[in-house]
Design a protein around this nucleic acid. Sequence first.
DNA 1: ATCCCGAGGG
DNA 2: CCCTCTGGAT
Length: 223
Amino acid sequence: MPSPKKVKKLNRAAAEAIFERFHEIEPEPKGELDYVNAFTLLVAVVLSAQATDAGVNKATKRLFELAPSPAAMVALGVDQITELIKTIGLYRGKAKNVFALSQMLIDLHGGEVPDNREALEALPGVGRKTANVVLNIYFKQPTIAVDTHLFRVGNRTGLAPGKTPLEVELALTKQVPERFMLHAHHWLILHGRYICKARKPECWRCPIREWCLFEPKTPLPGG
DNA sequence: ATCCCGAGGG
DNA sequence: CCCTCTGGAT
């Protein structure tokens, strides 16, 4: 019979300590995507799939100057949008989605960005992760968007192990204390981006290493 | 499971 | 060169 392979997972107390530490270090973590309203946030997040935020910001600086609203975006047209965002990976599909999504906001939501998951995920190019970001960042809902960083950090640390992003997300909703839920996404993404990096995690300067289950290849100095 | 796909870093 | 970056649709 298949033995249920035990996955090492941090207990609640350790999880709570981790977020206390994050809060202590950075009480108000901020994302690094540029936007000026709900619409531009939504578009920026759609464009950010498999792309760096720095690269997205470079393109959206051009794009949002011409089209900071759904109507302006539709007026721009797919070809113009494509040209403007050509420096971002997956740009063809993203340009089509941004155009169609803008038209749909006009047709179905009075040009506004909807504040619920169902409506958001019905938009082209918007899946669970993107919807969670908009709900969390703009509408201040306690969602946790699991991207490549959260997925890696959740598994590597043992904070929230899971085979899929959804599993990690559900694990995190149980591990993160409610009072820290609004900021959990930003704390974890920044931690993953600058310290718990994919290639060379910098464990020697990690603020949560005393709780982490990951064993770095290169041992800590003196340890 | 596979495709989409440019920029930046090592 | 190879890997990674705030994924989604088929």
